[in-house]
Simulated scan of single mutants.
Amino acid sequence: MGLTLGAIVLNVKEVGPAAEFWRQALGYGAAPDNPDFLVPPGGRPTELHLDETDRTHLDLWVDRTTSTIEAEVDRLIALGARRVEDWTYPPNADFVVLAAPDDTIFCIIG
């Protein structure tokens, strides 16, 4: 196999404010050769989730050894995210749907 998932491209309204939000949200830094790319400090590889009914978005997984879903939701809201109130959740959902300051939808998975 010669391929790996190298990047996820998000269409944002304005790169500067979006980059600041995502750097703080994920603890990523700007790539030395291209500040439009945000890179992890050394985390696990990204998984590709295929789904026929859901729209394209990020799933951010909570590291349960260091945080909780509630703490991460609160932290991201403090950074400027907001809850997506009109989302229909399945019974016993283990996630919360948020929108970044530029309205990019993402999920926090517990």
Rank of each mutant, 00 (worst) to 15 (best):
Gly2Leu: 07
Gly6Phe: 08
Gly6Tyr: 09
Ala7Ile: 07
Ala7Gln: 14
Ile8Pro: 02
Val9Leu: 12
Leu10Gly: 00
Asn11Asp: 14
Asn11Lys: 06
Val12Leu: 01
Pro17Cys: 08
Ala18Glu: 05
Phe21Gln: 07
Phe21Cys: 07
Trp22Pro: 02
Arg23Ile: 10
Arg23Gln: 15
Gln24Leu: 13
Gly29His: 08
Ala30Arg: 14
Pro32Leu: 14
Asn34Gly: 03
Val39Ser: 00
Pro41Ser: 00
Gly42Arg: 01
Gly43Phe: 05
Arg44Ile: 04
Arg44Val: 02
Arg44Asn: 09
Pro45Arg: 02
His49Phe: 02
Leu50Lys: 05
Asp51Asn: 09
Arg55Ile: 00
His57Arg: 09
Leu58Asp: 08
Leu60Pro: 11
Trp61Ser: 15
Asp63Gln: 13
Asp63Ile: 11
Arg64Leu: 15
Thr65Lys: 14
Thr66Pro: 14
Thr68Phe: 07
Glu70Phe: 07
Ala71Glu: 15
Glu72Thr: 15
Glu72Asp: 15
Val73Asn: 12
Val73Trp: 10
Asp74Leu: 14
Arg75Cys: 02
Leu76Tyr: 07
Leu76Cys: 10
Leu79Ser: 02
Leu79Phe: 07
Arg83Ser: 13
Arg83Val: 05
Tyr89Cys: 01
Pro90Arg: 03
Pro90Asn: 08
Asp94Cys: 09
Val96Ala: 12
Ala99Met: 04
Ala99Phe: 13
Asp103Ile: 11
Ile105Phe: 01
Gly110Leu: 04
